[in-house]
């Protein structure tokens, strides 16, 4: 069942776009593809991606990885106390930083939510404020705070808290904007005031989302906290950078394993907490 050629020609005349894109469009696509390929090639050249360097690097990487096994096990009680203190400090920094950030972000998020703050200039200003905070990487904030508050966990906690305000306020505001209007309408129609509508009609909708976001950020901050330690803001990261600097790779790897286990445990724990609050839990009152 083949079409007669004149019918095909008829369609080609009337619907040329169904057969091929116009020449200008094909040219533009071709130019873009070429430009993209040139950019990639230049980047590879500029950063010295030569097969020889990659090969030599892989050899050294293999030696470093070789220190993983057997894992170093600390026997000196003083060493064990040091490591435990470092891990605990990182965990505590992440916990306190996330909590402080969430406490400040919660009220701010209402100012940034379209369905609560209908005064556009204020909402716009608050939102841009969140953006500015987020634009500052936590690591940079930490470097500044170490100058201001001195070396140690205090600078780390404050750096995490400040960073979290920007992130959590934005995410909380979006959670508030994503709520259904109808429960609030029900409250207002029954004679409820606007604060009552927000408290009763809106907040029950956002609790699980807020909890979920905050728990995830806590977990993420445990990882961030490790890096903050490397620049001197306390925690396990300091011990890690110390061991790497001294070429004690066996110990460094064991610290990395402990960090992975810590993050895994937190992930498991937050999944349990989330399930408890979001699942079939009925003890609402």
């Amino acid at each position: 069942m083949s079409l007669p050629q004149d019918e095909i020609d008829h369609y080609k005349r009337n619907l040329p776009r169904a057969f091929a894109a116009p020449l200008s469009l094909r040219l533009r696509r071709g130019t873009l593809a070429l430009g993209f390929a040139a950019l990639v090639a230049w980047c590879l050249y500029a950063f010295g991606f030569s097969p020889e360097r990659i090969w030599n690097g892989l050899g050294r990487l293999g030696r470093v990885l070789g220190f993983m096994f057997p894992p170093h096990i600390w026997t000196d009680p003083e060493d064990i106390a040091d490591i435990a203190k470092g891990l605990g400090e990182t965990l505590a920094m992440a916990f306190l930083g996330t909590l402080l950030g969430a406490l400040v972000a919660f009220p701010l998020s209402f100012l940034g939510a379209k369905n609560i703050n209908r005064f556009t200039p204020l909402r716009f200003g608050v939102r841009r404020g969140f953006d500015v905070i987020r634009a500052l990487e936590t690591l940079i904030v930490a470097l500044v705070f170490i100058r201001a508050f001195g070396l140690g966990p205090l600078a780390g906690v404050l750096a995490i808290a400040v960073g979290e305000v920007g992130v959590l306020a934005k995410l909380f505001a979006e959670a508030i904007e994503n709520t259904a209007e109808k429960p609030q309408e029900g409250v207002v129609a029954a004679g409820g005031s606007r604060p009552q509508a927000i408290r009763i009609g809106l907040m029950p909708q956002i609790w699980p989302v807020l909890l979920s976001i905050t728990l995830y950020n806590f977990e993420s901050n445990v990882r961030t906290g490790t890096i903050l330690g490397i620049v001197g803001a306390g925690g396990i990261g300091f011990l890690l950078s110390d061991r790497i600097g001294a070429y004690r790779w066996g110990e460094a790897w064991s610290i990395i394993f402990l960090i992975i286990i810590l993050v895994y445990v937190i992930d498991w724990l937050s999944a349990r907490i989330r399930a408890r609050f979001i699942g079939k839990w009925e003890g609402v009152r």
């Binding site: 109808k182 429960p183 309408e185 029900g186 409250v187 129609a189 029954a190 004679g191 409820g192 005031s193 009552q196 009763i200 009609g201 029950p204 909708q205 609790w207 699980p208 009925e282 609402v284 009152r285």
Partner: peptide, 23 residues
């Protein structure tokens, strides 16, 4: 309302008690 407009995550008794919000 057609879509009931209850607070879905709250218990039934609380939803009924919301009739007293103004009082």
């Amino acid at each position: 309302f057609q879509q009931f407009n209850l607070v879905p995550r709250m218990d039934v008794a609380s939803n009924v008690l919301h009739g007293l919000l103004n009082r």
